[in-house]
Amino acid sequence: MDNSVIKTNPTISSDSIKMQERLAIFLALIAGYIDATGLIQWKTYVSFMSGNTTSLGAALSTGKYGIIITSITVISCFLIGIYAGTCLSLWKRIKNQILTFYLVSGIVIFYSIIDYFYDINNLLSIAVVGFSMGMMNTIVTSVGNQKVNTDFVTGTLNSLARNTAMLNMTKDKDEKEEYKSNAVHLLLLWIGFLSGAFIAPFLLDYFGKWTLMIPALLLMICGILISKINTKN
């Protein structure tokens, strides 16, 4: 069966699925916010690697070396971020993903403070933020057994359309409920990303170089709250 449409494992509790969904939407909103900020400030996507790959291909054929360097930098750092985040998630000493919250938040906070006082150049900014976005993309990779990506929307929209099509085509009642649930999760994820991108320009005008402190602090607070919830349980 295609990985974009997988039936939910009955052993996964509804409470866990709801927590995953809310967290995925929150992270998608953060990703949309940071991606829009990167596009406005540096004319580069820091999480949408499909767009950067297209830009890289076009730049290679036209000899636009500035775009080539920028695209290779952000794509490489994003991949390294995913690699690092995945290694952390598989590390036996790490019981949950809370550390990744703190690391991403800490990197962005540290970057914002340094950039405020020393004006970091665009290429280094793209590298740091791209790496952070790659790490953040590894925090939530599924809602139930539905695979999701919180940092980019092409796969989300593809899975949304597929689940919607299967919802309309199947006659099985249980399958209809499953596909409907998946479609709702994916739609909310897309809306979360869109909302973050919508908000970013307004807050960028108001906060300037401190604008990335907002998602960084939200990630920090979210990590603390989840840590407390896990402790109680």
Rank of each mutant, 00 (worst) to 15 (best):
F131D: 14
T154F: 12
A165C: 12
G106T: 00
S112R: 03
N230C: 02
I69S: 15
L27C: 02
A31F: 10
L123H: 11
S13N: 03
V5T: 03
I17G: 01
I17F: 09
F26Y: 01
Q20M: 15
M220A: 15
L124W: 15
M1Y: 11
E175N: 10
G223T: 00
D2S: 13
I224K: 06
G106S: 06
V5W: 00
I6E: 12
L124N: 11
L88N: 02
F110I: 10
Y33D: 05
P215E: 04
A216G: 07
I6W: 01
S47V: 04
Y118C: 11
I139P: 00
I226K: 01
V46P: 01
S181M: 11
I69H: 15
M213R: 03
E175D: 12
A197C: 01
N121S: 12
A28S: 04
M1R: 09
S14Y: 04
I120K: 03
I34L: 05
L225I: 01
L99E: 09
R93G: 13
I126H: 08
S112A: 11
C77T: 15
G63A: 09
G32V: 05
L56Q: 08
L123G: 10
L218T: 02
A59K: 13
A36G: 08
T231D: 05
Y45L: 12
I68S: 13
L79V: 14
N158W: 00
N145T: 15
E175Q: 09
I72G: 12
I114M: 05
N3W: 02
Y118M: 07
T164F: 07
A161W: 00
E177P: 05
L157Q: 02
Q20K: 10
D115G: 02
Y118W: 15
L60E: 04
T73I: 13
I114T: 04
D174R: 08
I224S: 14
Y65C: 15
Y65M: 15
M1A: 10
S132T: 09
K95V: 07
Y206S: 09
S125R: 09
T62W: 06
N163D: 13
Y111W: 11
I114A: 05
W91C: 12
M166C: 07
G144W: 08
L157K: 05
S55F: 04
T141R: 03
D205I: 13
C77R: 13
L225H: 00
S61K: 03
T141F: 11
I224P: 08
Q41P: 03
G196I: 08
Y83M: 15
Q41H: 06
K95T: 05
P201H: 08
S16C: 14
Q146D: 08
G38E: 14
T70K: 15
V46C: 00
M169Y: 11
M136I: 01
G192V: 01
L212T: 15
L27E: 00
G51Q: 08
K95N: 07
A161I: 06
A161F: 06
P201C: 09
D172W: 03
S14F: 10
L167V: 04
I109E: 08
G57K: 03
G85A: 03
S159T: 10
N145K: 07
Y118Q: 02
Q97P: 03
D35Q: 11
L225D: 01
K180M: 09
G196M: 12
